[in-house]
Amino acid sequence: MTTQKLYELFVKNNTKGRDGITPNANFKRTYGEISFEEAFESYLTQVNSFLSLKKRIEEFEHFLQAEGVERIQSGISESRYYHYNGIKYRFSSHVYPTGSMTDKTMGVIDLAGDPELINEISF
């Protein structure tokens, strides 16, 4: 998807009745009284940050697989678990319905619910 097309969708999704002109309440709450162009730059920064986290998480999962760490597939969801250096890591494209499963005391890191925790992992 081109940046122009993404911008057009951003404007439609953030205007009253998707009219492409009048900012909706969510836009005003999130971005205040700035232009769509300025808000879009902020939005793109957030998207790129998320994509960077996603890529690093994927690299970490590939690392665990290359290390021969056993993958445990959940029997009730698409979550995948790996035990590595005394920590249980959860990978999934879905966040658990009640939120993150991260519990550092119990040695559980939920990279689906708390993707920013990838920045604390060295591999």
Rank of each mutant, 00 (worst) to 15 (best):
V47G: 07
S52M: 02
L51Y: 07
E41V: 14
F36K: 13
G107Q: 01
K54T: 06
R90M: 05
L111M: 06
S79W: 07
N24Y: 10
L117R: 06
L111F: 03
H83F: 12
L53W: 06
S77V: 08
E67W: 00
R71P: 07
I121G: 05
V69C: 05
K28R: 15
I57P: 09
A25W: 08
H83N: 13
M1Q: 09
F63G: 00
T105R: 00
E70S: 06
D19E: 08
A66E: 12
Y84W: 15
E59S: 02
G20V: 05
F63K: 03
F40Y: 15
F91W: 11
E41Q: 14
S122A: 11
S92N: 15
A112H: 12
V69I: 14
R90Y: 08
A112P: 14
K12E: 01
E70H: 03
F36G: 13
R18L: 01
R18C: 02
E38Y: 08
S77L: 12
F60L: 10
E78H: 13
L53V: 02
G113T: 04
S42F: 11
E38N: 14
N14L: 05
I72Q: 14
K28W: 06
L44R: 15
G99L: 11
F40A: 09
A25N: 13
S42I: 10
R29L: 14
R29G: 06
I72D: 12
E41K: 14
S79C: 12
G68T: 07
K12H: 02
N24V: 05
T15I: 04
Q65S: 05
G68A: 05
S35D: 08
I76H: 13
